[in-house]
Computed example of a mutant assay.
Amino acid sequence: MEGKPGLRDRDVRGRARNARPRDALGRPLGYGETGVDPLPVDLVVPPVEALAWAQHLIESGRPFQAHEVLEAVWKVAPDGQRELWRGLAQFAVGLTHLARGNDVGAAALFRRSADHLVPYAAAPPHGVNAAGLSRWAAMLADEIERAAANDRSQMAAVGASVILAVSDGCVDPGVRDGRRAAFQEARVGCGLAAG
């Protein structure tokens, strides 16, 4: 695939693909600029690994790439889990919009995420804290809608610390800086501590 200004980039099958490099938030850069390494288009990753990888990407300030990882699982998930993965991917897109300064888009994606996650609250697959993350997404949407434009940077910092996956002993998503007393830090207790 070769990208040329004015022409549509296509892969070997003739499908439209954007060959332009992207920044950490998925925004296209100019041809020849250096962006972040793209994820493979045909990415296949097991669910538990996808959760850990997505969490790492979120913590690294790359929620757009986290969404791509979660979306890869969503595409191949069994019917009974597809909406869970859709909700997780939408949460990551919400973080992306928040980091880009698109508060309206962020709030809308967090609400959609919450709606998709809530049905999994009672019996979440793969240790995903669907109940806690659904509440957290709804709370973020509420706060974004109330926040003034100058609060956006604080919201992005809070949102980027969300914990996607949980295991034994973990109840709610956490916030690393402790600004939300209702949500405890869960990284170590969930086995997600950075290596």
Rank of each mutant, 00 (worst) to 15 (best):
E185Y: 05
F91I: 04
A131W: 00
S153M: 13
D177F: 07
G178L: 01
A66C: 03
P40H: 12
D103A: 14
L117N: 08
A92W: 08
G195M: 06
Y31W: 09
P40I: 07
E59P: 01
I58P: 04
V188Q: 10
G94I: 07
A182G: 05
R180V: 13
R86L: 14
L51R: 03
D79Y: 05
L7P: 13
R180I: 15
G195K: 11
R152S: 12
L164Y: 00
G3E: 07
H97T: 05
P38S: 04
F64I: 03
A108S: 15
A156G: 02
H116D: 15
V158A: 15
S161I: 02
A156F: 00
T96R: 01
K4F: 09
G195Y: 08
I163P: 11
F183Y: 15
V128A: 04
P173M: 06
A137C: 12
R10E: 04
V45S: 03
A72E: 08
R62C: 11
E71C: 07
S167M: 05
D142T: 08
Q55I: 08
E68W: 01
P40L: 03
N129K: 04
R10A: 03
T96D: 00
E83R: 03
G32P: 08
G30K: 14
T34V: 13
G35E: 15
L51N: 07
L109P: 03
E59N: 10
G87H: 13
D115H: 06
V41F: 07
L95M: 15
G195E: 10
A157E: 08
R20S: 02
W85I: 02
A181N: 09
